[in-house]
C-alpha cells in the first residue's frame, strides 16, 4: 500500500497566528511598492508600475486561492485555513489596483473612467472580475457560511470566473502577449480544469489506498 509522506504539520495552536502572519506578509508588496513610488524610487512611469504591481499580486493571490484544493487532493497538504486570507488578499489588491487607476492614474476623471470601462474590453473584463469579487469578499466570514449553507459553495464558484477574468485582463492589457501572461493563463487553466477531474481522481485514489493518506495523518 502506498503511503504518501505527510509534510510536517504546523501545531494546531499556531494555526490562528499563521493566518494573521499571512495577512501581514501579504500586504508587504503593496506597502513597499507604495513607499518606493511615493518617494520617487519606482523607475519610469511610477504610477503605472505601481498599478501593475498591484494587479499582478492580485492575480497571484487568486491563483494561490485556487491552488488550495488541488494541493490537498494531490499532495495531502491541507492549507484550507489560509484560503480565506488568500482570497481576501486578492480582493484588497484588486481594490488597490482599481483605486490607483482611478485616483493616481486618472485623477478621478469619472467621464474618462466610465468611458474606459464601457469601451475598452480589457478594462470591462477586469471591472467585471472586480464586481464579482465583492459578494465573495462580503461573504468571507463564518457567519455568512453558516447562514448561506450550500448556497455559499455555489456563490464562491464565482472565483473560477474571476480568476479567468483576471488572467485574460492581464494578457489583453499588454502590447505583446509574452511568456509571463501565458504562464498565468496556463496556471489558471490547469487550476480550473482540475475541478471537473477532481471527483474521478479522488475516487481513483480512494480505491488505490483506501483513504487519502493525509486524512490519516491528521
Amino acid at each position: 500500500m502506498t503511503v504518501i509522506p505527510a509534510i510536517p504539520a504546523l501545531p494546531r495552536k499556531y494555526h490562528g497566528a499563521s493566518v494573521w502572519a499571512l495577512y501581514a506578509v501579504g500586504f508587504i508588496p503593496a506597502v513597499f511598492g507604495f513607499y518606493l513610488g511615493a518617494t520617487g524610487q519606482l523607475p519610469g512611469d511610477a504610477i503605472k508600475e505601481f498599478e501593475h504591481l498591484l494587479g499582478l499580486w492580485a492575480l497571484r493571490y487568486l491563483v494561490a486561492t485556487l491552488s488550495i484544493t488541488p494541493l490537498r487532493d494531490l499532495f495531502g497538504i491541507n492549507w484550507l485555513r489560509y484560503r480565506r486570507a488568500l482570497g481576501l488578499l486578492a480582493f484588497w489588491y484588486v481594490v488597490m489596483h482599481f483605486a490607483t487607476y482611478m485616483i493616481l492614474d486618472k485623477y478621478l476623471d469619472f467621464p474618462t473612467i466610465v468611458a474606459d470601462i464601457a469601451r475598452r474590453p480589457f478594462i470591462t473584463i477586469g471591472m467585471a472580475g472586480f464586481i464579482m469579487l465583492i459578494p465573495l469578499a462580503l461573504t468571507s466570514n463564518n457567519w455568512s457560511i453558516r447562514r448561506l449553507g450550500s448556497r455559499w459553495n455555489r456563490l464562491h464558484k464565482l472565483a473560477y470566473v474571476i480568476a479567468a477574468a483576471g488572467a485574460v485582463h492581464f494578457a489583453m492589457s499588454v502590447k505583446v502577449v509574452g511568456p509571463q501572461q501565458l504562464i498565468y493563463i496556463g496556471m489558471v487553466m490547469v487550476l480550473l480544469l482540475w475541478r471537473p477531474l477532481r471527483p474521478r481522481f479522488n475516487q481513483w485514489r480512494r480505491a488505490q489506498i483506501g483513504r487519502p493518506s493525509f486524512e490519516r495523518a491528521r
Binding site: G37, A38, T39, G40, L42, G44, D45, A46, I47, F50
Partner: peptide
C-alpha cells in the same frame, strides 16, 4: 505622464 517628475504626487 511625464517621466521623472517625483513619483506619485508630482
Amino acid at each position: 505622464n511625464r517621466i521623472g517628475e517625483g513619483g506619485f504626487f508630482g
